[in-house]
């Protein structure tokens, strides 16, 4: 019954890693779009919008991802609406990413010196134009390292999706470990694949930082 860990198993892990990457990308795209809106609502000079954004961020940051996964996956099927593992995972991680990215980006937006707001106002730009043409371009560069740092965390956190039966890299590793009883071989391979994904992200981030230099 117990078998050797072989080349086919490495392939199996690589195929499972696709799901880790796809889930991260989907969460990043959807979560990023939501985060941009939340980050702006968080800083606009209109109190109720700020409160709404703060409430949303606190709610998401204050509840565990595992709980959110269970609610999206099992919670809705209680009412007869069956959500697939992929849909539940993408929804959960998009919401998770949106709250954290919103806070990261809010920090970036607020770290642009106040004088930039004032001088762009003096040029006759309205609020949205100031954000669009002056503040956001400068905030983007500041935000690259923390955003990529969060993305690297997100890659690794997607392993939590295994609780709802989503087979990504970690879950595939666990399944193989139970077939081969060879944890060193299995988990070293899993760790190496995570490293390649995360290291590539960090490298890409450094190159991107070098290219974007609007403030200089």
């Amino acid at each position: 019954m117990i078998r050797e860990f072989g080349f086919d198993d490495v392939l199996f892990l690589l195929l499972a890693a696709r799901w880790t990457i796809l889930l991260t990308l989907a969460a990043m795209a959807i979560g990023g779009a939501v985060a941009l809106v939340v980050a702006i609502l968080r800083i606009v000079p209109f109190r109720p919008a700020n409160w709404l954004a703060i409430g949303y961020i606190n709610l998401v940051q204050g509840t565990p991802i595992l709980g959110q996964l269970f609610i999206f996956f099992f919670g809705f099927s209680v009412f007869g609406w069956n959500v697939g593992a992929w849909t539940a995972a993408v929804t959960t991680f998009s919401i998770y990413a949106s709250a954290y990215l919103a806070e990261i980006w809010r920090g970036g937006l607020q770290s642009v010196p106040k004088t930039q707001w004032e001088s762009s106002a003096a040029l006759g730009l309205n609020y949205l134009q100031r954000l669009r043409y002056v503040i956001i371009p400068q905030a983007v560069r500041i935000n690259i390292p923390p955003t990529v740092g969060f993305l690297v965390q997100l890659v690794k956190n997607t392993s939590l999706a295994s609780v709802i039966g989503f087979v990504e890299l970690s879950r595939a590793g666990q399944m193989l470990n139970n077939a081969t009883f060879a944890p060193m071989a299995v988990y070293l391979t899993v760790a190496a694949i995570y490293f390649v994904i995360c290291f590539s992200l960090s490298r890409a981030s450094q190159r991107l930082e070098g290219r974007i230099h609007v403030a200089r």
Partner: peptide
């Protein structure tokens, strides 16, 4: 992940 009840073969 529960050999021999359910596991991945070669």
């Amino acid at each position: 992940d529960v050999p021999p009840f359910g596991f991945l073969d070669g």
